[in-house]
Design a protein around this nucleic acid. Sequence first.
DNA 1: CACTGTGGCCGTGGTC
DNA 2: GACCACGGCCACGTCA
Length: 916
Amino acid sequence: MTFDVRLLDSTYSVNQKDDGVSEVIVKLFGKTRENKSITILCPDFKPYFHVFEPSPALLKAFKDSPDVLSVEDVTLEYKGSQEKFAKVSVRAPWMVPKFRGQYELKHKTITLVDPPEELVEKLRAEPDVLEVSVLNGGVKVSTEDRVYSQKLINRYGLIAYMDEEDAEKFHTKGVFFAADIVFTNRFIYDHDLETCVRVSGDLMERSNEYTTDLLLKASRFEKCDIFTPKLKILSFDIESSIKYNNIYCICLTVINEEDGSRQDRRIFSEFGARELKISAEEQKARDEDERRILKEFVREVRALDPDVITGYNINNFDLAVLFERANKLFGKGGGKPDEEKKRQSNDELGFGRDTLGMSRRENRTTGFVTWDVKGRLILDGWLSVKKELRPKREGLGYVSTMLFNDTKDNIDSSHMDDEWQARKDEVIHYCLKDADLALRILTHPRIQAISKLMDVAIPAKLPVKEVSGGQNRMIESLLIRMVDREKVAVPMSSGEVYDYEGGFVYDTKPGLWEWVIGLDFSSMYPSQVIKHNICFTSFTKNKAEAAHTSPVGAMFLPTEKRHGIVPRMVEGLLTSRKQAKAAMKKAKEEGNLEQADYYNRLQNAIKIMANATYGYFGTKFCRWPYNRYIAPSITAWARDEIKTVVTTLESRGYTVIAGDTDSVFFTSKEHRDLEKCKLLGFTVQQEFSAGNMHLELEKVMIRFFAHAKKRYFGKIIWPEESLLVRGYEPRRTDSFDLQSETMTKVFQLVLDGKPEEAVNYAKDTVHDTIKGKVDLPRLVISKSVNEFDSYDNPGSLVHVNVAKKLQEMGYDFTPGMKTPFIITNGSAQPQKAEPVIEGVQFTARPDYKYYAERLAMALARITEPFGCDERALIQGNSQRSLEFFCDDKPAPKAEAPVHGANVKKVKQTATLDMFM
DNA sequence: CACTGTGGCCGTGGTC
DNA sequence: GACCACGGCCACGTCA
């Protein structure tokens, strides 16, 4: 049988065969073109890794181990040279980290005791040796990395000259390569599988082990074209007692995209609210009932067999509740009950597509928790809506109202025990409603969390679950395939951290400007990679060979000599993006909007990958040991590129107003209408576009205002009329609506050439605020609150105090979620505020003086050039300058003498007390 | 085992 | 009042 499959997830198992030999089986989960769920079993693939020039002792250790299947000699390129490696294949994936722990060479500096003088001379002559230092009898040899240390040890038998302790560090040790690639990914790379694949094999009898419609034993993989199957999405919500932790009910709702059908399940306790003192007998009966609830949940999910599991804030709440209750009521299953283990699982929660339980993983540094069941994607509606829409508030009720004008039922979640006792049916309805809202959020046209993951999986060539785990996996998926094919070694990350310089930001010329031309380089960083052949395979230390020397001193070979893998990969991405864009255009012309939308999302996904390539080379996770040269060279060349444009324009008498990383905004005295600006813009575009660098005229603005770097707004009149705002409060999620709305209005008035009206509007709004003439919702401020103990001084932060208060009131606190509040005393230290809770009347009095001052402070940054500073906004008197627009220099300030360029602005604080 | 980057503004609390 | 550090969020073409 042959099926076209869209891959969703992968895992493996190690089975004992009848003859006692263990068998490794890779399992792929996916959805067929006919929308059937499928499990694909792939036997006969073995884990392996590479070791650089292993010593005879290490080779013997490998060959003698019963866990090693084979050791082969291979030649791979490393830092531009062909080197000898051993390819070691082992019986099971978990043995790879075991061997690493036992045999990995961790040190690179070699200390020799009384080596012969001639040996020292030979070492000094070695090109790979960085330094040889002699200190009281000992000789210290340092090299660039462990590979070169190993080489010296092998060549000169250096272990014989080490003391016992050092010999221990280097004897029977080796430098491991590619020993950290997840086994199932290794399978995918080696078979060059993509996110869609045609698989042939024997269809097997469905077993209880797997929940999918189909079970196939694979024998062959082939390429197939991309398709997007319809998925089954399950959303769930749990209501539980905050006091006693027991579960009252779990509600599920499932939608099958194939036919739009909908199924609901309500699983709930037979008991009423728990009370503080209960008999041992009742406790026992309640526990048994709750075990039933958990089992029923697992059974329902297995039977419904969804591809995606979602809910609102399930990562922090619902899945954690399931896990804790299962651990308590069934005991821990699956492996060691070790609290310290990074990955824990509970076998009773076997609602994945195989029989393994749900597992928990916690990021050590961020504390971020993720959950996993095999074969199904777990997506959190909260995280999706946060990422896609950046709403000012993040509660389920607020988001639902915003997206579909529907909201939560009215149940007081801070008193769930009372609610369960008083109105069980309403609680169950509320629970199901929440599950439904979460499902609608995930699939909302503005969010489309699943579609987006499916889209990025296409250029990344990975199962959908893989791409939700971070962008480095997508980069490595492409890179490792190319590197393997070309027999280049795949090192492991050193984890080294370092700082380097980023983009160039032009010191903005503040004020109001007319006829501003904006240009930017398309794909600046990827283009620099291509332009200068930046890659770990083309890096050189040989000046004579180098064709490109970056401003930070790194050298790269000419493409004729060695066309780097990274530039070829990036070129491939930019080319396929162009193709996707062309396909989008064609589809649009043919009126196929759905297909046009698909290609649009695809080209966007490719763009993200192209940009992420640069980011990958800037992290400590980057495998290739040139990360100290690659990312800094990319940004340095980019700085040069944009600075050249800026200085050239300035040398011609144009006024550059702003610029950031790859963009430049400038104006010219002689170009004061659209046609002239376009002509000039296109001339500049032409002049600075060469080779693969493309400077593009992006916009012409009739008016443009800025007061600082990354703070500007403008009225675009070409190519289409629109309002541009960057950095200011209307863009920020931690500003209050009154502030955002007032500023937007002021922006518009300024851009329409009506600064007097803008100033008057600003003043009126400030005055209304002082008098309290403003709706409460427009004063709500919302800020993210992290884990309390992550703060230096949590008690001094008003938003942290509000979150603590909410937690004390009995509401669930989620680290990272925004907490809404209204300031009731802005002059107290720390400030005082009251939380804003969905469905609860806000009764406290806002500190109107505080809001008026904050408003005036923000507005003054705009109105100041028009003769109205913060004090004037509040007091009502102002003088206006007659000349609003900047020409070559910023508009003179009307009130104060013109500040020199280096004179700091004097902050003026107005007193509001006279108005109170 | 996790896992993209740097530059920058500004409100706030704290110190001198 | 000046100055600093912290914290949150934003700009980088809609992700640089």
